[in-house]
Computed example of a mutant assay.
Amino acid sequence: MHINGSINLSEQFHALSNAETGYIHAPLHDLHLNNSQARLLKYIADHPGALQKDAAAYLNRQNATVTNMLKGLETRGLIERKIPRDNERQKQLYLRPAGVELVKAIRAIFTALEQQIEAAVPTADQPQLIAQLQAIAAKINLIP
């Protein structure tokens, strides 16, 4: 799809998303993780005690899908799900020591990606680009 003889914006976003996925795929694969699992572990690290439903909302995934992801991470000894005494229907998420160590490696991968992106965009242009991307996301209802 072309507009005015150039690739349109949605195609550029698609290409950028594919490039991001490709950049982090191999290092995450070496950690026996996919992108969603890595982002879920980072979320739990940043929000200890978060509810499972909040993690599902963050990942924009069905609760059942996230439940399966969490079961796998729990089996690997990376996380634990605790049921609070005051609400047996909710499960709070915490990293186990192995998960804490793995998140360090995950953060290094995403930091390297961020450095690559920052190197591609002049520092002075970054705030404007971020604002434009946020406006686009809000306009097409990607963020509340």
Rank of each mutant, 00 (worst) to 15 (best):
E88L: 14
L142T: 03
Q128P: 00
P144L: 00
T123W: 01
V66L: 14
A45Y: 12
T75K: 13
P127K: 00
Y94H: 15
A137E: 13
Q116P: 01
A105I: 01
E114T: 12
I83A: 11
T123Q: 08
Y43H: 15
R81V: 09
Q52P: 06
L73P: 01
E11R: 10
Y23S: 05
R85T: 08
Q62Y: 12
T75G: 03
L51M: 04
T21N: 02
A112P: 07
S10H: 13
Y58V: 03
I79R: 00
P27E: 06
A56Y: 08
F13H: 12
S36W: 05
N4R: 09
L41N: 04
V121G: 05
A131C: 00
I136C: 05
Y43W: 14
T67S: 15
Q52F: 11
A38Y: 03
G72S: 12
I136Q: 09
N68L: 10
T65A: 15
G49I: 09
L113F: 08
P27N: 04
F110L: 03
P122E: 14
H29P: 01
L41Y: 06
K71H: 04
N63C: 01
I143K: 04
A64C: 02
L9G: 14
L16T: 05
G49L: 10
N4T: 02
I140Y: 13
V121F: 13
S10A: 07
G5H: 04
I109V: 14
S36R: 06
L9F: 15
A56P: 06
P97S: 11
G77S: 04
H47N: 14
H2Y: 06
F110H: 05
F110R: 00
K71V: 07
A50Y: 08
A131P: 02
P127E: 02
H25D: 10
E88Q: 12
A137P: 15
Q92L: 12
F13N: 10
H25Q: 13
I109Y: 01
L133K: 01
H29M: 11
A50W: 11
A98T: 09
P27F: 05
H47A: 04
Q37V: 00
I24E: 02
A131E: 05
T75L: 11
E74G: 09
A56D: 15
N60Q: 15
A137H: 03
K71W: 06
L16E: 13
